[in-house]
Simulated assay, not measured.
Amino acid sequence: MTKSNYFSTKCVFGQLISLIDDEIISNAVNKTQSDKFTKKFTTKDHLISMVFCSFAKCNSLREVAGAMLGLSGKTNGFQLQHIPKRSTLSDANRNRDEEVFAEIYNSLLNKYGNVLSDSRIEEIIKKQVKIIDSSTISLFKEILSCVGRKAKTGKSKGGIKMHTVINADEVVPSVVWFSKAATHDHQFLAKLPCNEDTIYVFDKGYNDYKAFEHFTKNNTGFVTRIKDNAVYRTEQINEIAENIHSGVLEDATITVDVKHGSTLIPLTLRKVRFYDRENKREFEFLTNLMDLRADMIAALYKVRWQIELVFKQLKQNFPLKYFLGDNENAIKIQIYCVLIVNLLLAVIKKKLKRSWAFSNLVSFCKIHLFNFIQLIKFLENPEKDWDLNAKPRNQLTLFD
């Protein structure tokens, strides 16, 4: 058999780590002072260790420390300077501010934004569409307060809620904010920047008339679903043009009351009633986009499903069930490192001409994490090596 065409001087893990520039890490360290009192186990070592944990799907500190100990003498390819012991990694997860990992993630997003972006939606709408949602991650210990009833024993599990914004033309979160699981979703709306070139799309769990008033005053669009018990006044039924999708049943201008202390201030919004033939359901959408076509309002809300796929992708492919620490800081660090790994693999997937399912790509990288093959080249044509070494059809065997 001839020599493999895919040999590389760096293992697959080293090639993935090389996507994170040293400058990105050093800038984040300088900004957050995360190495100020560190002697050996630097932020870069910490990051590489936690990225390895995400790739290898380790469920405990013992697994991470034991697996990395077996890499002694092989760490040059991925620039690890100090292999951590279990106690070292535990202390780092507890004491190093998770903000440095947030900075690294945001810098990577800025660097690879052009690779990850698909501008087709923005070209049609002429605005940036941002999708908002949250996902609750259950914790075995009551580290953060969780929603739901307590067990008969009086004990309750903890939970952390990950509020997320993704651009509709991207496949990774652009903004992440953590809170206790019991925190109501609508509180996150106050953190969102407003500008006339942005449309926010979110479900009815985020209904907040004060936030809608704030968006409207700042010329920022939003699309959501109206609550079943919403109180409003119908001001006008708008005519539905012939070129509008037949699923649009009603397009109305309505008024809701926004409470400011003891005063009620009216806010004019738009309600679109739409029948989805695919799901055989009727939906009512609420928006402040008065000039957009009614069927486009329904189409914008349908784009919101993309963020559900992102949450599903994260939870199915990475360890967000077992955490390495029982403190809030350690949990946030592990989630940020999962987001970093998700981003790196999304970049690899976008660069490939060949179509790969994301779960298959994750499994492939896990299996070949320390094999010395050229990742991109191999993924483009994994069968090529076998084809080159295959026996010609007309060649006789020893017993022919």
Rank of each mutant, 00 (worst) to 15 (best):
T2E: 15
S4G: 01
T9Q: 11
C11N: 15
S18C: 04
I24K: 03
N30L: 15
T32A: 07
Q33R: 13
F37S: 06
K40T: 12
K40G: 12
K40Y: 15
T42G: 06
C53A: 13
S54G: 04
S54E: 08
A56C: 03
K57W: 00
S60L: 04
S60Q: 05
R62G: 02
E63F: 03
V64K: 02
G66Q: 14
L69H: 14
G70C: 05
G73A: 06
Q81Y: 02
T88P: 07
A102C: 13
N106T: 11
L108Q: 06
Y112L: 08
E123F: 13
I124C: 11
K130L: 14
L144I: 04
L144Q: 03
R149I: 05
G154H: 05
S156H: 11
S156D: 06
S156I: 12
K157W: 05
I160C: 06
K161C: 12
K161F: 06
M162Y: 01
T164G: 01
N167W: 04
A168I: 05
E170N: 02
P173Y: 03
V175L: 11
V176D: 09
S179Y: 06
K180Q: 13
K180L: 02
K180M: 05
A181V: 09
T183M: 12
L189H: 06
L189V: 02
A190L: 09
L192Y: 03
P193F: 10
N195V: 00
E196C: 11
D203P: 03
D203H: 05
K204C: 14
Y209E: 06
F212S: 09
F215V: 05
T216D: 13
N218R: 14
G221W: 14
G221K: 11
F222T: 07
T224P: 11
R225L: 15
N229T: 10
V231R: 12
V231W: 01
Q236W: 08
E239K: 10
I244W: 11
I244L: 07
V248D: 03
V248R: 01
L249F: 09
D257S: 12
V258Q: 11
G261P: 09
T263G: 03
L264P: 07
L269I: 08
V272A: 03
F283T: 01
T287F: 13
M290T: 13
M290R: 12
A294M: 08
D295L: 04
M296Y: 14
I297S: 08
L300H: 07
K302I: 04
R304I: 09
Q306W: 09
I307T: 03
E308W: 08
L309E: 11
L309H: 05
V310R: 02
L314E: 13
K315F: 01
K315A: 00
K315R: 05
N317W: 07
F318I: 02
L320M: 15
G325Y: 04
N329G: 07
A330F: 09
I331T: 09
I333G: 02
I333F: 10
V338I: 10
V341M: 14
N342Q: 04
A346C: 15
V347I: 13
K350Y: 07
K350C: 07
K353H: 15
K353N: 15
W356S: 05
A357P: 00
A357G: 07
L361T: 00
K366C: 01
K366M: 01
K366Y: 01
I367C: 00
I367D: 02
H368R: 00
K377L: 06
P382Y: 00
P382E: 00
N394A: 03
L398E: 11
